[in-house]
Amino acid sequence: MSVLIFIDINDEGSVKKTSFEVLTYGAKLARQLGVPAEGVVLAPVKEDLPALGKYGVQKIYQVQHEALAHFDAQVYTSAIAQVAEKTGATVLVFSNNTDGKALAPRLSARLKAGLVSGAVALPDTGDAFTVKKSVFSGKAFADIKITTPIKIITLNPNSFSIEVGEGTAETASVEVTLDAPKVKILNVNRQSSEVPLAEAELVVSGGRGMKGPENWGILEDLAKALNAALACSRPVADAHWRPHNEHVGQTGGAIAPNLYLAVGISGAIQHLAGVNRSKVIVVVNKDPEAPFFKAADYGIVGDLFEVVPKLTEAVKQLKG
């Protein structure tokens, strides 16, 4: 019996930030269950794996195989299933990020293991094994009971604090047999300078109140001063003022940053659905009746074209 944590590596060989969250989460869960916390790494990695022990993981299994050079959900699933079987894993933990969303359901079907995706807290492991997850696009929670011997959880990004302690993980390599991947990667376009939106702690978001793409400079300046990622409302992405991956809400991305700063967004229910798990919401809108103020923690009623540059200055002052 053990908790097996999938350590997700990006295409540059670095451990993703969400991996630190799942390592902390998985290690705590293992302690709660009184079983070892173990990690698994499939992709080529540049970083020092034993150092990940500081997140509480005791052992890391590394699989080296040419079929794993790039992410392929089918091949990765096969590799993780083999590691899980060889090591007797009883709980598998992933981030509910792009790779986790592709792997966890496949493994659920393969191992006949109940899956809870989008967990927001540690499971309740008293009489049953029950995991709280976000449902109705952040408007509610559900406690889901997993009734199978093997259990799979994907943890929502930014919903569990990373904890760093002391410790070094032991590493071990595992042999697996794999077919060649059927999916071939042609290229990866990543803005490595930017914070990925789903992982960002601070997010500055613009709506139709921005009037046009030519005005985004003031938001970019504010985001830069804060070291925040950018997001937008649906009409903004639909009008191609901003790229699709910045669209948040019911039909876009769901995010849970520490700070969500909404500028010129009315706060329609479908928009709120993607951002209402943010810890602190700040709204800048010229209309005091904008529904967003009801969901906000702080607000400024005013013209964004005046308020935003002043905010940027004030943030710069704070940061010295």
């Binding site: 295409d11 792009t98 999916v183 990866v188 376009n189 990543r190 789903a198």
Partner: peptide, 11 residues
């Protein structure tokens, strides 16, 4: 979609 970007693949 991948974190902070996109990946193009064939299958």
């Amino acid at each position: 979609e991948i974190e902070g970007g996109e990946e193009v693949c064939t299958v």
